[in-house]
Write a protein that binds this DNA or RNA. Structure first.
Ligand SMILES: [Zn+2]
Length: 362
DNA sequence: CGAGTTTGACCAGCGC
DNA sequence: GCGCTGGTCAAACTCG
């Protein structure tokens, strides 16, 4: 009887695992499906702003390790997922070495080899349980792997970019501003209706929104140093999160780059920085030296230079244009295009991390 | 005093 | 219309 029971148990176990794997495969398939359909399909499915973050297919990670000599090794965007841009960059103080991992292009990015694959959809929507669970798992795996490697993980940054995603969010702050200004100029509250008409018209013609890029950075400090100067213009409580979201604007004149910074409520060790638009000016040079002079953070293991290294900066037009193509393109030329893109990866990375590693300040 | 932050008010969009 | 939410404004405030 015991044997029978054991058999029964085994069968149950088998059924369970079978279902589990079936479920996994199904989800995998679904994600592939979305990838094949490209961004637009997702935009139709996803509706609101938070979900929009799921659509950012440009995923990569930066891992920064500190070895005994305090030499900085920067592990830059590593590939993941069929629809992601793929590059693995290891950089030291001496020089740069661009490593490509083409095999990762067609890798599913799921399970299998957690150390080499990373598929990250920054999802902060509690409604999307699958994504959340998955992301949480991957990040945990990553930490494990890194930790077992004996390296000190200072910071981990994942990047996800979205091209113009108009479906979710409307760029209305300009019109709102102008409305307010007009009101002030007139000195009258009269004819608000006409203004509203103007406003809506303006909104219609200004349909396309600025591209956004989200960076997920593992850090303990809220405001990551990225070389640019920012003025905080707002702070809001984030729904379902104990952590607030801060709104920053680039202080340079005529540069309307904005960024939002918030700590993930799912993984409080992670900070999400979302950049909007691009700088039309070089990085201000003034305060760099001061930042390198000494640590000002409370964390022993995170001197400021590390934060700079691991801090996402901005992105170039080129990047954003390229990403969606890479993501949508799944035909036979895909690999070739990827390889071509790899040729430009260095430029791209230079663009994203302009000052610290890839370029001397002017 | 200038530059940046804080913070409550305000506004638009959206779902109901 | 109403309430909720994300995003912005701007007066007051802080800091060097
Ligand atoms: Zn700027």
């Amino acid at each position: 009887r015991n044997v029978d029971r054991l058999k029964n148990h085994k069968r149950k176990k088998f059924v369970f695992f079978y279902f589990f794997h079936l479920l996994q495969a199904l989800l995998l398939y679904l994600l592939f499906f979305f990838d094949f359909l490209g961004f637009e399909s997702l935009f139709f499915i996803m509706s609101n702003e938070t979900k929009d973050l799921n659509n950012y297919h440009y995923t990569s990670s930066y891992n920064h390790y500190n070895n005994i000599n305090n030499q900085n090794i920067l592990n830059l965007p590593y590939v993941s997922g069929p629809s992601t841009y793929n590059a693995n960059m290891i950089s030291s103080q001496i020089g740069y070495d661009l490593q490509l991992s083409p095999q990762g292009v067609y890798e599913s990015g799921f399970e299998l080899s957690p150390s080499s694959t990373e598929f990250f959809n920054p999802s902060f929507d509690q409604q999307n349980d699958f994504h959340n669970a998955f992301n949480y798992n991957t990040s945990n795996k990553r930490q494990e792997v890194v930790g077992s490697g004996g390296a000190i993980i200072e910071s981990e940054t994942r990047v996800s970019a979205s091209p113009s995603s108009e479906a979710d969010h409307h760029h209305d702050e300009d019109s709102g501003k102008s409305l307010r200004k007009r009101e002030a100029d007139d000195g009258g509250k009269y004819d608000q209706r006409a203004q509203k008409v103007v406003k809506t018209k303006k909104k219609e013609e200004k349909k396309q929104r600025e591209p956004r890029v989200s960076f997920v950075t593992k850090t303990e400090v809220e405001h990551l140093e990225d070389g640019y100067r920012w003025r905080k213009y707002g702070q809001k409580a984030v729904k379902n999160s104990p952590y607030p979201r801060s709104y920053y604007r680039c202080t340079t004149q005529k540069c309307n780059v904005k960024k939002r910074v918030e700590r993930s409520y799912q993984d409080p060790t992670v900070v999400i920085t979302t950049y909007e638009s691009q700088h039309n000016h070089p990085i201000p040079t003034s305060r760099r030296s001061a930042l390198f002079s000494g640590p000002t953070t409370s964390n022993y293991n995170s001197p400021v230079s590390d934060l700079i290294i691991n801090t996402p900066r901005s992105f170039s037009n080129d990047d954003l244009l390229r990403v969606p193509y890479a993501a949508v393109n799944v035909n036979a030329n895909y690999q070739q295009q990827q390889n071509q893109e790899f040729q430009n990866d260095y430029e791209l990375l230079k663009d994203m991390f302009p000052s610290v590693f890839f370029k001397q300040e002017p």
